[in-house]
């Protein structure tokens, strides 16, 4: 091959290469164009508010002033008793809701997965119903149930027991507020967890169960040695969303304890601030009291708590999976 031929071949190769580059660039541009609506809306409505709330947390931002104050909001919230109460309440609710809700959901999902059960879909539908009920309706209905002169106390009186001040409106005691909020939340969300566990159970190949039974495993062995270990990935997901949902708990306590609508009529979580969650505190601080910077600092704290808990949860699950 002469030098001229080599040059021609190189030229052709270069041309081909350029065409391929142009084609792939065009393809990439189209791809970016198609995905851009999501990313643009994510940046504007998702990323920007997050970044901006970090900025807000470092300012004293009210409707009338915006002043950079560095970490003062964080120093203050570490010493703020109401924030401590809200953090404690959120963690308490997360723990109780998490344990009860997940145990109940797992139990029901396993029961619904039983081979001899009829009307499985009907049961799933019934358990899922509370999840699709409006929080406002839930608040109103449970408000009537938990009222001092409400349904629960009517039943208790019929049973000859003293009434319980579920929402702390009659005695000023907040002792029963957290259990009441937890009960409503568990009732509302356990159906969703049942559905997730049920999906996880159905994803386990039937052959594994059959093989175990051929090897002589009883129901208990199957549950402990096959079903639960193989549900761990779903379990991780369910625990994660339960942690996130519990820490962000807002609508149930607000509807049960929100009091009269309007400024200065929030209840800060009812008697003894027992129903005050971090999310409620962010809302009250920003939109009732106009302290947006301080509210942003509380939301950053909430974000930090969630990141920490999610990392711990991930460590626990994946560590045990590796083992």
């Amino acid at each position: 091959m002469s030098v001229a031929d080599i040059a021609v071949v190189a030229g052709v190769r270069q041309q081909l290469h350029r065409r391929r580059v142009a084609q792939s660039t065009r393809r990439a541009l189209w791809a970016y164009l198609f995905i851009s609506p999501f990313y643009l809306s994510f940046v504007v409505f998702g990323l920007f508010p997050i970044v901006f709330s970090f900025y807000l947390s470092l300012t004293r931002w009210t409707p009338y002033q915006s002043m950079w104050i560095g970490a003062s909001n964080f120093v203050n919230l570490l010493q703020d008793n109401l924030v401590h109460t809200a953090l404690f309440n959120s963690l308490w609710l997360m723990l109780v809701i998490g344990v009860v809700q997940l145990s109940l959901a797992l139990l029901i999902a396993v029961a619904l997965n039983a081979r001899r059960l009829h009307g499985r879909a009907v049961f799933r539908g019934i358990f899922f119903l509370p999840y699709i009920t409006s929080p406002v309706v839930l608040g109103l209905v449970w408000g009537v149930i938990f009222a001092y002169t409400g349904v629960f106390n009517f039943v208790l009186a019929w049973l000859g027991t003293d009434p319980v001040d579920w929402l702390g409106t009659a005695s000023g005691s907040g002792a029963w507020i957290k259990p009441a909020v937890a009960l409503v939340t568990i009732w509302q969300y356990f159906g969703w967890n049942v559905l997730l566990f049920a999906a996880g159970l159905q994803a386990i190949p039937a052959e594994i169960f059959e093989a175990a039974r051929i090897d002589g495993a009883n129901d208990w062995d199957v549950l402990l040695r096959i079903t639960l270990p193989l549900l761990k990935r779903v379990g991780f997901f369910v625990v994660s969303i339960t942690i996130i949902g519990s820490i962000q708990l807002f609508d149930a306590p607000l509807m049960l304890l929100g009091g009269v609508a309007g400024a200065g009529s929030g209840t800060l979580g009812g008697a003894e601030a027992s129903g005050l969650t971090l999310a409620m505190m962010v809302y009250e601080t920003a939109f009732n009291y106009g302290q947006f910077g301080y509210a942003a600092a509380i939301s950053v704290l909430m974000f930090g708590v969630l990141v920490l808990l999610t990392v711990v949860n991930r460590r626990v699950f994946f560590h045990s999976m590796e083992n």
């Binding site: 001040d165 702390g168 409106t169 009659a170 005695s171 000023g172 005691s173 009091g259 400024a263 200065g264 009529s265 929030g266 209840t267 800060l268 009812g270 008697a271 003894e272 601030a273 009250e284 009732n288 009291y289």
Partner: peptide, 16 residues
Amino acid sequence: ALGTDLLNAQVDAAIG
């Protein structure tokens, strides 16, 4: 607004 909320919580506590 904040003062009223804080006051109401303590009023309930005192009445209770």
